[in-house]
Write a protein that binds this DNA or RNA. Structure first.
Lengths: 248, 248
DNA sequence: TGACGGTCAGAGGTCTGACCACTGACATCA
DNA sequence: TGATGTCAGTGGTCAGACCTCTGACCGTCA
């Protein structure tokens, strides 16, 4: 005789609390900037110990969802920084080979720019043009340029109307930030990048998806090439060889 | 007379602990897969309470750096979790629409299977064949089949020799697990999936990258179609209408 | 000999209740 | 009116207790 039992799912209190908070945030019951109930109150109304509540809050704090101010209270973050913040902390353990990251970017961004052409509205394309202008006026400060540069790429991903691809792009951007900065500091690189952006923009505006993808790939291959040059020119500035294997 | 004082920076114990762990990780003193000291020991050697250690561990767990197994211990994550956890935590606040996840999968897996053909060794292809056999022998239990199914897709991603793409695939797999299970439970779906796998395998073995990509896309479009049917047959089993817009 | 179940140590999970440190607001006083 | 003191509320930290889960060891019994 074969008895069939249902698996009993056990979750930790911390998980449950995070899930409940998440729902309240999603439903709009808690809005960005709002103050959450004090830990003690939260614990009591959930019928759990304060320690459990604190672990959940701590986790969400480091995810960038909550902001904890000692003596004041716990607040829901203003939305925008949720992804990047979390990533900054975790990317300390750099692990992906830079060339693989770039290759992945080629695949993702080849797709986003293609979809962007197919799916975007004229207003979207106007915005993209404005963002291009913005990069063109930020040619003095590398960091600012890189920021504007990312806004341009991000806007394209948004125009693809696929939030997953957008998220992937943001993630990779964080992981390649350092290298991007190194590349852009090379003389002539800002102008170079701007040229590529202009070509991409042109293809998007004229709704030529294939050509847009083509220019995007050229752009990323160019970056790939520069990074390769950088890597070769300073063969190893990594110290630990044990960790070398899983450095990005 | 103007006295100038240095600002006293106060950090929380949790921050300090995270910082110390981070240094040990970066220096290679703790390697991926390693077991950390028990919470109690860690607490004692840091001269802090166990609660503080737990908060630090919990934070790093949700950052994807540590893996906590109840009754066993705390471990430093293996390489590949970072992106997955990134997605999971952003998924906490904003669920990705299922159709966008599938679309992303088409883009990623179209690339991995192509690269797999180009880059894989004969041994890799043998292994893939074995994994196909494994799926073919697990047709009775849906959960097991799904697991074997994933191993097949994962192996392809590994053969592409791009850890970033592999990681993204894993992330998406976790986010679509539920829907995959629903699809595979439909009658005839296991056989259907096996057919597609066989075709993909065939193209890989004969080193036809374009055809392999083609079959992979057909496979995923098929899944897309099934999910669409599912979604339409139960239009709204979500409760909150405020959140409706963001639910996948 | 090998499968099964009992036992136990060690690990994480949870709870309690206490006290400290910081913040903001209100009351007080010169 | 402005500086100062006070205090309640909130997060930060602690010690110690007990629970549950995991893995390993070991004896029983077919």
């Amino acid at each position: 005789m074969v008895l069939s039992f249902k698996r009993i799912e056990r979750s930790t209190i911390t998980e449950d609390i995070i899930e409940q908070l998440r729902e309240k945030i999603l439903s709009g019951e808690i809005k960005p900037g709002d103050k959450l109930p004090p830990e003690r109150v939260l614990a009591e109304s959930l019928s759990v110990a304060r320690t459990s509540v604190r672990e959940a809050i701590r986790a969400m704090q480091y995810m960038g969802i909550l902001e904890v101010r000692c003596g004041e209270g716990t607040f829901l973050s203003e939305n925008t920084r949720i992804l990047t913040d979390h990533f900054k902390s975790s990317h300390l353990l750099k692990r992906f080979p830079i060339m693989e990251l770039i290759e992945a970017r080629k695949i993702i961004e080849g797709a986003t720019v293609y979809l962007a052409v197919v799916r975007s509205s004229p207003e979207d394309r106007d915005t993209l043009q404005e963002l291009y202008q913005l990069t063109a006026t930020n040619t003095d400060d590398e960091e600012k340029f890189l920021q504007a540069d990312f806004e341009f790429h991000k806007k394209i991903a948004e125009m693809s109307q696929n939030s997953v691809l957008l998220e992937m792009l943001s993630a990779m951007r964080e992981l390649t930030l350092e290298e991007n900065l190194d590349v852009i500091k090379k003389p002539g690189q800002i102008k170079n990048a701007l040229d590529f952006h202009r070509k991409i923009l042109g293809s998007v505006l004229s709704c030529d998806a294939d050509k847009a993808r083509e220019h995007m790939l050229r752009h990323l291959e160019d970056i790939e090439q520069r990074i390769l040059e950088l890597v070769e020119s300073r063969p190893s500035d990594e110290e630990s060889d044990a960790a070398g294997e899983w450095q990005r």
